[in-house]
Design a protein around this nucleic acid. Sequence first.
DNA 1: TGCTCATATTTCCATATGGAAATATGAAAT
DNA 2: ATTTCATATTTCCATATGGAAATATGAGCA
Lengths: 100, 100
Amino acid sequence: MSAYAALAEPHRRQILDLLREGERPVTELVKRLDLSQPGVSKHLKVLREAGLVVVRTEGKQRVYALRPDPLAEVDQWLEPYRRLWSSRLDALERHLEENP
Amino acid sequence: MSAYAALAEPHRRQILDLLREGERPVTELVKRLDLSQPGVSKHLKVLREAGLVVVRTEGKQRVYALRPDPLAEVDQWLEPYRRLWSSRLDALERHLEENP
DNA sequence: TGCTCATATTTCCATATGGAAATATGAAAT
DNA sequence: ATTTCATATTTCCATATGGAAATATGAGCA
């Protein structure tokens, strides 16, 4: 699954936000996510397949960590759009570009 | 539909990319998209509902224009992640943050 | 009015999705 | 070896999704 598609799900974005604070075992994520354990595991699987997280087994636990690299693609796609909302003059600017 | 979900579909991102060059009637989009006319119209509907495009009727044509505002939310969400891939020292930085 | 162009909507279909509940797996502790 | 804890997988279900094909709508033109 693409990074874009992975981000479409709010819970998955939440998971990434949590992992931004540092790596976390699944239990911890379940506690903080208002979602069942299987639900969390399912989303983690999607995130794994999108390359957005990695797992490490630590004793009984499975510790997940953020892997932000695929987000760089999204960021790059977004790049040319950024200037379009960065100033109040957007509408005017666009109009001028289209009508040189 | 959320902007995130709208972006999950590659054709929809393509449409936005095309509209970044300026407003375009549907015919033009159909020509450039390797997708049937109904297909394009369906995706345009989604984009409309996500607030990412606006339409204007011009004679027989329906002219679509980009409305980048909802992308700002995505951009903001992405913001704290940006530093994580912006330097080769990421892994180290994160490690240090988690283990102060 | 009837025709045509541009676009939207509907229908059909196959597939994907997310959640809940139940079950399976695997490591560690007893 | 058995139990327990942590997590993953499976099953079931309702709903959403995307594409293709057919049809509908609506504006301008003959």
